[in-house]
Design a protein around this nucleic acid. Sequence first.
DNA 1: CATTTGACTTGGACTGAGTCCAATGTAGGA
DNA 2: TCCTACATTGGACTCAGTCCAAGTCAAATG
Lengths: 124, 124
Amino acid sequence: MTAQRRVVAEVLDGEHVHLTADEVHARAVAKLPEISRATVYNTLGELVTLGEVLEVSTDQRAKRYDPNAHRPHHHLVCARCGAIRDVHPSGNPLADLPDSERFGFTVSDVEVTYRGVCPNCAAA
Amino acid sequence: MTAQRRVVAEVLDGEHVHLTADEVHARAVAKLPEISRATVYNTLGELVTLGEVLEVSTDQRAKRYDPNAHRPHHHLVCARCGAIRDVHPSGNPLADLPDSERFGFTVSDVEVTYRGVCPNCAAA
DNA sequence: CATTTGACTTGGACTGAGTCCAATGTAGGA
DNA sequence: TCCTACATTGGACTCAGTCCAAGTCAAATG
């Protein structure tokens, strides 16, 4: 556990929003000016493999990092501004995939992304 | 409707798999050697806005294009080799998102991505 | 205490996917 | 046929992310 890793963890823990790697880097630099992009990527990658943080790619641009990895959830994304909210649908979509639609796969996970327009963008 | 656009449409229609833009380009070049990448991107973009083709981004790499836009469906992705199958879960996940979890959004769409290991990769 | 070791960090080069743009080509109407 | 608007081209550019060789640091060893 080095200073750099602590800073990255603090950034993610501090704001419960979904930051891109570059945003994490920018906030990390504010606390530890000489931290490099590569280290931020390395640390984020480790946090992901440790299961502390989730990678989310709701648009086709930069991946975002979700510190809320321990509570399973899905995402609701604004198609205009890109805002992301965590949501907890009722029901288990995994159970909605019948065997006949599994093609022999061992299905272990499901991601659900709802898309719509947020109140802010709807008002504008 | 130019020769270039016809070729792109033919490529997508010919193989019901999920090609990347570069794969579409490669196959288009086979039929019309001097077609450029930019034209393929332009045409794919138009097909997407016309609703003829869907953009799918199951991994964080290249977008893939799904010619099966008229029949709603979701995707099952192999975590190892990236193979993609179209699937039709029972139930409607949109209905699973209660109003209390909509945060004032006008929710219009939902994408579901199942992840697992395909029979081929499981055997290897 | 000095040295070795191995892991961590750095910055810069590199890659892949996609976009942008000025120049060129072309289809189809007047 | 000529014009005009639109489509195409290719190359430069951007953005996100990866890679790598070199440098740093701390803890363990002698």
